[in-house]
Each structure stands twice: as structure tokens, then as C-alpha cells.
């Protein structure tokens, strides 16, 4: 219990520190954030009014207090450009990002675990000789470039999939559920999810392979062999099951990290998600929106790190002993 409380306090501290860094970065770095927003033709009075609306005429420390207070209420302020509450804007695109990430991650981990186990089983075979350099190459390829090639081939080339967005223009849905389960949405999801998957599968694959190799040398596997169990049973029921454990932690960590990496994939496919919102907000100097999107991604990342930590202790009690 003490461990969980400590970890939670630690997480809150990290989030507070990140929020503070972000606040200071946007306000103290050279360049006036309001320049991008304020038209030079505004009169001094108009300028003051807008500054006042956004609370930018207050002293820095008071802005900081207001900022933290709003954060506690889940409020990120108003978008400079759209004049809408940032929280609402983020929540409206969040499902798109979460769905994309989850689908890609699950596909990547299923594929990685399967092929990684197979590689360890058929050690030294052709699969490994060709497979490992290929996997390392996918880890080395920029995600957006994989996306560009897929777009050129499957969207513009053979025309199987749409070139961008999450739904066809003009499509109307009765509910969110209908929207996310519609064939239209799923067709739009294929290419970005596949791009992310190609990038993500390398880690679970290599991890699974090395875990398997390690587990295969353990006594219970030798025992199973001595019992005369068929090789298939040994590999699947004994070795693979145990080798899967570390993948659970990697999945949680991967979820947090992917959310940050989604930025490029979402941009390539014009996918209306959190990452693209962040890029748009930063390039149009919409600081409240950029701040909100960034903090949202950071919050997911830090939470996932915490979950990974907890899962690690629960799944492998040997680890938990050393903590406290």
C-alpha cells in the first residue's frame, strides 16, 4: 500500500513539474505569444481587452496560480484561435487518437509475440536470418515515411483506401458508436493503423524472442522435455506463456510512448487526433491549445508508466520484494 501511495505521489509530482516547465516555456522564452494572435491594426484599447480576456495582463505568478487552479478543474482555458474551451476540443478528438493507438498496438503486440516466439523456436533458421535485419530496418524507418509509401501505393496507386481523414466528407452519424463502428471509419483507419503497427511491432518481437530464448533454458522447460511432452506443447504452454509476461509492461509503456509518436502519423494521414491538433496549435501559436494537448499526452504517458510499474510487480512477485 505504501508503495502505491508513494508511486502515486511521485506521479503527481512529475505531472506538476511538467505543467510548470510548459507554463514557463511558453511565457519566458523569447517572443511574445500574443504577437501571433493580436493584429497590429488593433488599437491599444482592443489589445488590452484581449490580453485581459486571456488573463495575460496579470503578473506572472498570478497567471501561474490561475493556471494550476484551472488544471485542477480540468480546464485548459480558451483556444486563442477558435475561442472554444480547450478541454472540449481535446475531448472531441481524443477517441480518434486512442482508437488508432489501441488498434495499432494490439495488432503490433499480437504479431510481435507470435513471430518473436516462432523465431526463438526455429532458432538459426532462415526466418531469423532474414527476419532480424528486416525488423531492425522497420525500427529504423521514419514512421511518416512508411505512411507516405503506403499512401502512394494503397491510396493513390490502387485506390483501396482513402488518402486521409477519419471519415468521408459529408458523412453523418446518428451516434458516436455508429460513427466508430461504421465501415467508412474503419476504412479510414486501416492505413494509419497499419503504418503505426509496422513501426511498433519490432519491440515486442525482439523482446519476445529474447525472453523465449531465456525461458527455454530454464529448469521447468527441461523438466517438460524430460516428461516427454511434444515440442509444440512445451513451446506454447510452457515457454511462450512465461515469456509473455514482460510484454505486458512493454505494452503499457508503449501506449504512453506511442501517443507522443502519433504526431507524425496523424499528420501524414490528416487523422483528426490529439497529435495533429498539437502540431496545428504549435504552428499557429495557439498556446492554450498546444499546452492542453501536450499536457494530455504527458498525463497519459505518466499514468501508463505508473500502470506498467504496478503490473510488473503484480505479474512477477519476485520483483516486488525488492521495493519498499
Amino acid at each position: 500500500m505504501v508503495f502505491y501511495a508513494k508511486r502515486l505521489a511521485h506521479m503527481v509530482f512529475v505531472l506538476w513539474a511538467i505543467a510548470t516547465i510548459l507554463f514557463l516555456m511558453f511565457r519566458l522564452l523569447p517572443g511574445d505569444p500574443t504577437i501571433a494572435y493580436l493584429d497590429p491594426s488593433f488599437t491599444g484599447e482592443q489589445r488590452q481587452m484581449i490580453l485581459h480576456d486571456f488573463g495575460l495582463d496579470q503578473p506572472l505568478w498570478w497567471q501561474y496560480v490561475l493556471f494550476l487552479g484551472n488544471l485542477l478543474h480540468g480546464q485548459f482555458g480558451l483556444s486563442f484561435r477558435q475561442r472554444l474551451p480547450v478541454t472540449d476540443m481535446i475531448l472531441s478528438v481524443l477517441p480518434n487518437t486512442l482508437l488508432l493507438t489501441l488498434v495499432a498496438l494490439i495488432a503490433a503486440y499480437a504479431f510481435g509475440a507470435l513471430v518473436g516466439a516462432l523465431m526463438a523456436w526455429k532458432r538459426g533458421g532462415a526466418l531469423e536470418t532474414i527476419g532480424i535485419p528486416l525488423v531492425l530496418a522497420t525500427r529504423a524507418a521514419p514512421e511518416f515515411w512508411i505512411g507516405m509509401v503506403l499512401l502512394a501505393v494503397f491510396a493513390f496507386g490502387v485506390g483501396w483506401f482513402p488518402a486521409g481523414g477519419a471519415t468521408s466528407p459529408g458523412a453523418v452519424f446518428t451516434s458516436n458508436l455508429a460513427r466508430y463502428s461504421s465501415a467508412d471509419f474503419l476504412r479510414h483507419l486501416v492505413l494509419p493503423a497499419f503504418t503505426l503497427m509496422i513501426y511498433l511491432q519490432g519491440l515486442p518481437l525482439l523482446l519476445m524472442r529474447s525472453n523465449m530464448l531465456e525461458v527455454m533454458g530454464e529448469e521447468f522447460v527441461i523438466m517438460a522435455r524430460m516428461k516427454g511432452l511434444p515440442e509444440r506443447t512445451i513451446m506454447l504452454r510452457h515457454a511462450a506463456r512465461n515469456a509473455l509476461l514482460p510484454l505486458v509492461t512493454a505494452f503499457a509503456l508503449g501506449f504512453g510512448a506511442t501517443l507522443g509518436g502519433d504526431v507524425v502519423v496523424e499528420t501524414v494521414f490528416s487523422w483528426p487526433g490529439l497529435g495533429r491538433m498539437l502540431v496545428d496549435a504549435v504552428s499557429s501559436s495557439d498556446y492554450p491549445l498546444a499546452q492542453g494537448a501536450f499536457l494530455m499526452i504527458a498525463a497519459v504517458l505518466v499514468t501508463m508508466n505508473l500502470l506498467a510499474d504496478i503490473a510488473y510487480g503484480l505479474l512477477d512477485p519476485r520483483v516486488a520484494h525488492g521495493r519498499r
Binding site: H10, F26, I297, N305
Partner: peptide
């Protein structure tokens, strides 16, 4: 503690924000 905070920063988003600023 500083290490923990930096590890909590999402990588690419932070690079973008820094590049913009």
C-alpha cells in the same frame, strides 16, 4: 527526480514545442 520528470515528457511533442519556441 529531474531524470523522472524528463522521462515523463512526451518525446516528439516536446521537441516540436521547443523547435517552435
Amino acid at each position: 527526480r529531474l531524470t523522472d520528470v524528463v522521462l515523463g515528457l512526451p518525446f516528439l511533442p516536446f521537441v516540436i514545442v521547443l523547435a517552435a519556441l
